[in-house]
Design a protein around this nucleic acid. Structure first.
Lengths: 236, 236
DNA sequence: GGAACCTTTCGGTGAGCGCCGAAGTGTCCG
DNA sequence: CGGACACTTCGGCGCTCACCGAAAGGTTCC
């Protein structure tokens, strides 16, 4: 019959971009939301620079990455929030099935820093992200029982905290993103991104090293306690 | 360095399952939410039965499909709503980039029936799905401006319409699913599934042939008009 | 201009995988 | 019991693609 859905080739091509271990490692690394150079990614993935260059060509051509050339460097980042969401969703689908266990102390401590707090593209994740999401929920600022949306009180909270929510085109104000360490949804979307940016700008938390992991500062603990009633214990 | 994210191999393996055109065609066909036999899928995809058998083995082993043997038939369906969502999300990512245009009259009329109304795994999609979602929104039953969630009035509406919403484990009551013909979100999740099931049970709409497409019946037009104020014109 | 550096292009190699047809297993039905 | 049917297993073929090293193209800095 060979009817086949006309979407099938396109779907397969998109999945094929992610179906290579080296490219997958690049996409996961780029989930930190920042731009990496081709060389950094090559070292991270453990392949020759020439090999990685070809991979980047495919990912850019496929629309998953955007590039920005600066001098002799090629900076590359995830194309947009939709791509980030896609990679997150795929990663979340995979984690429950085959639990990722650390094999040595180094991985273990790096893993626990990631589990404590990290960025997930442009919003907060890990126990930190969950703590914030839960605090918003119990205070009636975020509604999770019938879906996932900010309440009117929630809009007011962002306003009074001085965090501006730009109602841009298609991106939803609030969206659930499945946390792959906590296995529960945390806040993403415009509000999640704005909150994360504010947290970094205001020094509530800082990045650890050059990875995705973040840690809460003393002033951040104070701010989260005052604004959301989060106790320091919830962040460990 | 060869550090690499430990998730990378798993992510790549999952994507590889979808990265084959024949398997992608199967997954898209199975988006109708029903169980297909191996033979049906082989004919649909245009490959030998032996080839398809191997594909099904991989998809089942990978957790994307579940199988149910009945006599000499092997029935197979999407494993759960999460898998369906994943396939939908990938398909939605692909469609905007390369617009799928019908090439002949047959595809075109089949396409327009699909565009008018169809099921998307277990909920309504196409102009029908959008019309329902919009009607819920303008009546204050569904909130889309700050996320995507039913309102308290919305819970009451479902109750008074006699549609029971089972608050099961992890699945959200309401979730946005991007419609790939309308390019806008429609209602998915527990509420979307319950509404679709009720619409089929109550004869509001019926399936066309053996595909995903559905059409609204005269009694369905009446019911949608009375319960949600949807005019018949919005369904064409 | 020359040296160091990042990236890209190119040829060649090897492994993986989708495909088929033929043969085998199991089920249903007359 | 025997034939039709649905599916699976197996061997073999051919293509795709990730990988590398060597060489070339640009950029920056001295």
């Amino acid at each position: 019959m060979a009817t086949k859905d006309p979407q099938a080739p396109h779907l397969a091509r998109l999945a094929a971009l992610i179906a290579d271990e080296t490219r997958a490692a690049c996409l996961l690394a780029l989930l930190d939301g920042r731009a990496w150079t081709a060389g950094e990614l090559a070292r991270h993935a453990g392949v020759a620079a020439s090999t990685l260059s070809e991979h980047l060509g495919k990912l850019v051509a496929g629309g998953l990455l955007t590039e920005e050339r600066q001098g002799r460097h090629r900076y590359v980042r995830l194309a947009d929030a939709r791509v980030a969401q896609l990679v997150e969703d795929l990663a979340a689908q995979v984690t429950p099935a085959t639990a990722v266990r650390p094999r040595n102390l180094r991985e273990s401590s790096a893993g626990s820093a990631m589990a404590r707090g990290r960025t997930c593209y442009d919003h907060l994740a890990g126990r930190l992200g969950i703590a914030v999401t839960d605090a918003l929920t119990v205070r009636g600022l975020l509604r999770q029982d019938t879906g996932f949306a900010l309440t009117d009180a929630g809009l007011g909270w962002f306003d009074s905290a001085g965090i501006h929510l730009e109602r841009t085109g298609r991106r939803p104000l609030a969206r659930a993103c499945l946390d792959w360490t906590e296995r529960r949804p945390h806040l993403a979307g415009v509000a999640g991104a704005a909150l994360c940016r504010h947290a970094l700008d205001a020094g509530w938390c800082v990045r650890i090293g050059s990875e995705r992991a973040v840690k809460v500062t003393p002033s951040g603990e104070r701010a989260l306690g005052e604004l959301l009633g989060i106790e320091a214990g919830a962040l460990w």
